[in-house]
């Protein structure tokens, strides 16, 4: 038998277990994680005209479109006092965080096959790097949201009431991040094996946007079809986010509990599935 005092003893077996999350190993690759985050920023904004300004430019442009189309042309009601610019921008910022994190993590295997087939490192490092990258982007956009809010308060006389729910905002962001990571991990495994699911995922996310309170508040949804939106675990999170930041939103404790429970269950499933399948997928991609 192999024994050693100072050096790690490892074993590669035919069976992979659901419960072999090796945190110590993950931790030993933390420098790779930070370098991958750095790489994402470098390759996305090198050789571009506007550079990192794109992080703000994209949500701004989306917001202008939404204000124009939904508010000015169609006239969707967005609740009482909040300026449309702030309403849409807050929704877009959080939605982008979910959408981009999910999109990046769900392509983990597809985009990294050339590295995965040549060298071993804990595969979880890659989706974690994606999530951290997206968190930084979110942070920048969020600071910009606060700046716009301040401009509206001081320059435009927006009657803002600071809500005690503001303390929940970081917590909401973590939950949204974990949810997108969980769903992304599950999809990364499934799409690696069944490639056509990728198309389905794109459609699914597009539909999800419309049953998430991004372009409308939950309060403006008719009572008889409100359950459709409430089935979406993102809905209470978006409402609470808006309540915390802008002081208006409709959240019930049950809705929030549902979102948290949904996130935790999918996170558990995602990690189990990723552990179990991570080492087998290289044969099928």
């Amino acid at each position: 038998m192999l024994t050693s005092q100072e050096k790690p003893v490892w074993k590669i077996e035919a069976k992979s277990s659901y419960l072999n999350l090796n945190l110590a190993e993950l931790l030993s690759y933390r420098h790779l994680l930070f370098r991958l985050v750095r790489k994402e920023f470098l390759i996305n904004y090198q050789q571009t005209l506007l550079g990192p300004i794109w992080i703000l430019f994209q949500p701004l442009l989306t917001m202008v479109t939404y204000v124009f189309v939904f508010n000015k042309i169609i006239g969707v009601s967005i609740g009482s006092k909040i300026p449309a610019v702030l309403f849409y921008f807050s929704g877009i910022v959080l939605w982008n965080f979910f959408n981009d994190s999910f999109g990046a993590t769900s392509k983990t295997f597809r985009d990294n096959i050339s590295v995965f087939s040549k060298v071993y490192f804990p595969r979880l490092i890659v989706p974690l790097a994606s999530i951290i990258t997206q968190s930084f982007r979110f942070l920048i956009q969020f600071i910009f949201l606060i700046i716009i809010l301040l401009i509206f308060i001081f320059a435009r006389g927006f009657d803002f009431h600071f809500s005690p729910y503001a303390v929940a905002v970081p917590f909401i962001v973590i939950i949204v991040g974990l949810l997108s990571l969980s769903l992304g991990l599950i999809m990364s495994v499934l799409t690696a094996k069944y490639r056509d699911l990728g198309n389905f995922v794109d459609i699914f996310v597009r539909i999800l946007l419309f049953i998430t309170p991004v372009i409308y508040p939950l309060s403006s949804v008719k009572e008889n079809i409100r359950w459709v939106v409430q089935l979406n675990p993102l809905a209470p999170l978006f409402e609470l986010f808006r309540l915390g930041v802008l002081g208006e939103g409709t959240v019930s404790p049950w809705g929030l509990a549902y979102s948290i429970a949904f996130t935790l269950v999918s996170l558990l499933m995602a990690i189990l599935l990723f552990n179990k399948m991570g080492s087998k997928l290289i044969d099928v991609i």
């Binding site: 192999l2 050693s4 050096k7 790690p8 003893v9 490892w10 074993k11 590669i12 077996e13 035919a14 992979s16 995965f116 087939s117 040549k118 060298v119 071993y120 080492s279 087998k280 290289i282 044969d283």
Partner: peptide, 25 residues
């Protein structure tokens, strides 16, 4: 690739002591 932990063996096992690095490309 099996010893490098890139693909999983169908049967059997590999045991080792210490850090392992592979240069496959």
């Amino acid at each position: 690739k099996i010893i490098s932990r890139i693909v999983q063996p169908t049967t059997g096992y590999v045991k080792g002591i210490g850090k392992i690095s592979s240069i496959l490309e």
